[in-house]
């Protein structure tokens, strides 16, 4: 039993990271209906930025703040410059553009920082907290805590500020929002900025566990997709719940299903994505979309 609980805890730790990136995906999807395939790569780029700053001698937390600010600005800039021209274009076009962005950012990071792996400092102390035969690493606790804080801040932003109200208005109906005087274009850019910031947080959380290299988020992205699909692409809460479920499912499948083992764990998100899309396409917390022809 303790062994099982231990696996669940490990799974929650991994799931919190997937939840972070899934949250970033959902933020953009909610406002623009775009799934950003480059989200993971943007997070990776931000993580390199944080690494560069700490390597230059900045204390970790200051470097983190600077990275988040730069990521926010970068996300807005990308929306304004790259995504703007294809807004409202067919899905195929938009997907291809974000795939182009994916390839570009990945290669650019390789060009600037080379493809050799780097050690990323762990912001959380070593060691673990023990309770009833289960040991919970401080870094797992830290990751869970950070994701909870991010989630809470987003909740406050959306539900209790004027900007958040405007953002929700744009998400529900861009045309009506424009009619009541909300600047829709800037709100979309704001969404991208927020998503880039949340993505940067998930990158910084995952880097100490996986080592930093340009393909850092390649593996995480597919889990984040599974998490967002499971939770519903238009529900931030769903993204977090989905992330945790995916993390636990993956860890348990790897530990207890002999056939899957540790090498085939990557099949778990595929099964989850396929299963959810076939059985409940809107996800657990999403709204079903009725298309008018």
């Amino acid at each position: 039993m303790a062994g099982f609980l231990q696996q669940v805890v490990e799974g929650l730790g991994a799931g919190a990271i997937y939840a972070g990136l899934a949250l970033a995906l959902v933020l953009i999807y909610q406002f623009t209906g775009i799934v950003n395939f480059a989200q993971g790569e943007l997070a990776m780029f931000s993580t390199y930025l944080a690494w560069q700053l700490t390597a230059a001698g900045l204390p970790f937390w200051l470097a983190l703040v600077v990275t988040l600010v730069v990521s926010f600005a970068g996300g807005m800039l990308i929306e304004r410059v790259i995504i703007r021209p294809v807004e409202g274009a067919p899905e195929l076009t938009v997907v291809i553009v974000t795939v182009g962005l994916f390839i570009f950012v990945n290669a650019a990071a390789g060009w600037i920082w080379s493809f050799t792996i780097k050690d990323f400092p762990n912001p959380f102390p070593e060691g673990a907290f023990r309770a009833g035969g289960v040991s919970v690493g401080y870094s797992t606790l830290g990751i869970l805590g950070v994701v909870a804080v991010v989630m809470g801040l987003l909740y406050l932003l959306f539900q209790h500020t004027k900007i958040g109200l405007g953002m929700r208005a744009v998400a529900s109906s861009p045309q009506s929002a424009r009619l009541v005087g909300i600047r829709v274009g800037w709100t979309l850019a704001l969404g991208w900025g927020l998503a880039a910031t949340v993505g940067a947080v998930s990158g910084v959380l995952v880097a100490p566990l996986l080592f930093l290299d340009p393909n850092l988020m390649g593996g995480v992205l597919i889990y984040a997709f599974a998490a967002a699909t499971l939770g519903g692409f238009d529900s931030p809460l769903g993204a977090v719940v989905g992330g945790l479920v995916v993390g636990v499912a993956e860890t348990l499948a790897g530990a207890y299903v002999g056939f899957i083992g540790s090498d085939l764990k990557i099949g778990v998100p595929l099964v989850i994505i396929l299963g959810v899309l076939l059985l409940r396409p809107q996800g657990l917390f999403g709204r079903a979309v009725v298309e008018r022809v």
Partner: peptide, 22 residues
Amino acid sequence: VNDAAPGVVFGLLIIAVMYVAP
């Protein structure tokens, strides 16, 4: 030029092609 250059060229070209010459 650089190991990463093909990726940079690919990425930029895809985006550029989608804008100017679909």
